[in-house]
C-alpha cells in the first residue's frame, strides 16, 4: 500500500517534470535562478508537488522497512516510467527495455518475499506513533487521539 503510493507519486512527479522541462527548454546551470524560473511552469510545479508527497511516503517506508528492501521494491518506478512515456509521450520502448522491465518485475517479486525489516529491535528507539490517522492498523480508542504514544520495547 505504502509502496504503491510511493511508486505512483514518484512516477507522476517524474512524468510531469519531464513534460515541463522539455517545454521549458535546456538548462544546465550552477546558478539556482534558471531553475526557480522553471518552477513557474505548471507541469514542473505539479511535478514538484508530487515529489513532495512521494518523499513523505518514501521516508515513512524507510521508517518501517530496510533500505535494501525499499530500494528494489520501489524500482517499480522504472517499470511504470517507460510505460507512461510510451503511452503519453509517444517515446519508443525497445525490446531490450521490455526485457529490462520484465527483469525488474522478477527482482521485485524476489525481494518482496523477504521480511521487510531485518535490523534488530535494539537499533530502533521507541516508535513514535502519530495519532489522528484513520488507518485500519490503528488500535487506539477515540479518546487517545490527542496525545503521542510511545511503544516501549
Amino acid at each position: 500500500m505504502l509502496v504503491g503510493l510511493a511508486v505512483i507519486f514518484n512516477v507522476l512527479g517524474n512524468f510531469f517534470l519531464g513534460l515541463g522541462m522539455q517545454e521549458f527548454g535546456r538548462v544546465v546551470s550552477f546558478s539556482p535562478l534558471p531553475y526557480l524560473a522553471a518552477f513557474l511552469n505548471p507541469w514542473v510545479g505539479a511535478g514538484i508537488a508530487m515529489m513532495a508527497l512521494w518523499m513523505i511516503f518514501q521516508l515513512s517506508l524507510l521508517s518501517r522497512a530496510d533500505l535494501s528492501f525499499v530500494l528494489p521494491v520501489t524500482s517499480l518506478t522504472y517499470v511504470l516510467t517507460p510505460i507512461m512515456s510510451r503511452i503519453f509521450l509517444d517515446e519508443h520502448v525497445s525490446v531490450i527495455r521490455w526485457a529490462g522491465i520484465f527483469l525488474i518485475c522478477l527482482g521485485v517479486s524476489a525481494v518482496g518475499r523477504t521480511t521487510p525489516r531485518t535490523t534488530p529491535a535494539s537499533v530502533h528507539p521507541p516508535a513514535v506513533v502519530y495519532p489522528l490517522g484513520d488507518d485500519v492498523e490503528d488500535e487506539m480508542a477515540p479518546g487517545d487521539c490527542d496525545r503521542d504514544r510511545e511503544h516501549s520495547q
Binding site: 525497445s94 522491465i101 525488474i104 527482482g107
Partner: peptide, 18 residues
C-alpha cells in the same frame, strides 16, 4: 533472495536505460 532480487533489478534498470 534479496541479493538475487537486487541484482535482477540492477540488470533490469540497466537494460531499461538502453
Amino acid at each position: 533472495k534479496r541479493w538475487i532480487g537486487a541484482a535482477l533489478v540492477a540488470v533490469g534498470v540497466l537494460l531499461v536505460s538502453f
